[in-house]
Simulated assay, not measured.
Amino acid sequence: MKKIILGLAAFTMLAFTSCKDNAANKIDESNIAAAAERDAVASKFPVIEFEKKEHDFGEIESRTPVETVFKYKNTGDAPLVITDIKSSCGCTVPQNWSREPLAPGAEGEFTVKFNGSGSNKVTKTITVTANTEQGKEAVKITAFVKPDPNKATGVGAH
């Protein structure tokens, strides 16, 4: 019985040491260099920098459509890709942005249309989904929507 246990122990030691040597021999230096380069590039992100992060339309008539353009620049170290731009409601529509990668240092823009709905002070958030480190960026539009003069207010109406 001792001989069997001793034989198994010797066989196990031989198997472990031979596997260790084979694993070390399989390491390819070019793979290590490629992985290091990949990891260095993976830590570089595009950075979207807006010319303005908020636009105030001021005082507008109810139901009067208005629009503005948000300009931005990629100030990061990798190409910027905007995958989506959404508004906090259907009355505000972002459009006309490029879905092509924007090189570092390059500039782009998108248009935001607001249909003038609501009343008094109105604020809408536009969320930009991109490959930045945070993944989402936000800009805002504001307006003071004056009451519709053609709409009955209930005061003095019979």
Rank of each mutant, 00 (worst) to 15 (best):
P101I: 11
P149K: 07
T125R: 04
F50N: 04
G58N: 05
N96K: 12
G90M: 11
C91F: 15
T129G: 12
E51R: 01
M1T: 14
L80P: 00
I141H: 02
M13V: 15
E107V: 01
E107M: 04
E137Q: 06
P101E: 06
D56S: 12
F114G: 04
I48K: 02
I126C: 02
H55T: 14
V122H: 04
Q134P: 00
E59L: 02
T127A: 02
G135N: 03
A34K: 07
K124V: 04
V112Y: 02
F114A: 09
V139T: 06
T123G: 03
F144W: 09
T17L: 05
A157R: 04
G76F: 02
K52W: 06
F144K: 15
L102R: 00
K86M: 09
D28C: 10
M1I: 03
Q134Y: 03
I32L: 11
A10K: 11
I48Y: 00
K121E: 07
E54S: 10
A34V: 06
V112T: 13
H158M: 15
S88V: 06
A152R: 01
P101V: 05
T64P: 08
V93L: 15
N74D: 03
V66H: 08
S117A: 12
F70I: 04
I82A: 00
Q95W: 08
D39K: 14
I4C: 11
V128L: 11
T68S: 13
C91V: 09
I27S: 09
R99Q: 08
A23W: 11
A36R: 13
A78I: 00
S88W: 07
H158G: 07
G156R: 04
K26P: 01
